[in-house]
């Protein structure tokens, strides 16, 4: 796996994620800082794990990197664009173009089937943008979604609603959804946290494989040192501070 990873990307390339002196506190408790000056850089194709205790701020860092929340201080640059200079809509547009997110509890849309969940990411990103006509675009989305589902081993299950899928299958759909529009960065928050160990291992391997296939960078939040050890770099979060190793 590591041999196929793009870890050895030329350092001159612009980082896909650049976090500098990031601070954050929840609105209800401004005196309790969750992040206290975090710095982190991810080069294209690089795979980085963040480990740490519960409540240490690692998930918060991931969400701030995705632009889901405004930082208290410092800067987050996604694909070279500073999130601080963007409004809510601008952050959303940047996120859907550059990033794909995989959540611990899958977060599939319960009213859409597996295929539609994957197609949704394409629809929101306005893809494909080189096909004329709505019908043709929808057909292309369907084709890509089916391909993405097949790539995660769910061929033939596209018509099932999330409630008819197992946990492992749901997370595979979530991975397909996160990667279908070929984002430069995948943000994964405990992607195996809700799965048993066997399923978890299988899903994690699939995630790494897909990230490599799409040449995406990966920022993974996990409790598992074993999973973290399979990535290019490991950072540890402790009391809102991030250190390498």
């Amino acid at each position: 796996m590591s041999s196929s990873s793009p870890a050895a990307v030329a350092p001159s390339q612009d980082p896909v994620l650049d976090v500098a002196a990031l601070t954050f506190a929840y609105p209800g408790a401004p005196e309790t800082a969750v992040l206290r000056g975090v710095n982190l850089t991810l080069a294209p194709g690089e795979r980085v794990a963040i480990v740490g205790e519960s409540g240490s701020g690692k998930s918060t860092l991931l969400h701030l990197a995705a632009g889901l929340e405004r930082p208290g201080g410092g800067e987050v640059r996604l694909a070279g664009t500073s999130l601080g200079g963007l409004d809510e809509a601008g952050r959303t547009r940047l996120r859907r173009r550059v990033a794909g997110i995989v959540f611990q509890s899958f977060h599939l849309i319960p009213t859409l089937d597996a295929r539609e969940n994957v197609m949704l990411a394409l629809e929101l990103a306005g893809l494909p943008d080189d096909v004329a006509g709505r019908r043709a675009r929808v057909a292309e989305r369907r084709r890509r979604a089916d391909a993405a589902l097949a790539a995660v081993g769910l061929e033939g299950l596209g018509g099932r609603l999330p409630e008819a899928l197992s946990g492992g299958e749901q997370q595979r759909v979530a991975i397909a959804r996160a990667l279908v529009h070929q984002p430069a960065l995948i943000l994964a928050d405990e992607p195996t946290g809700n799965l048993d160990s066997v399923t978890g291992e299988s899903v994690f391997s699939l995630l790494l494989e897909q990230v490599a296939t799409h040449d995406s960078a990966l920022l993974l939040v996990t409790h598992s040192a074993e999973l973290a050890g399979r990535l290019d770099r490991i950072h540890t979060m402790h009391d809102g501070l991030l250190r390498e190793g």
Binding site: E88, T92, H107, L124, R177
Partner: peptide, 16 residues
Amino acid sequence: AREFATLRSLGLEPRG
């Protein structure tokens, strides 16, 4: 709310 938050995280703008 959770569904809306997911949609937002997937890239649905506030006007959406």
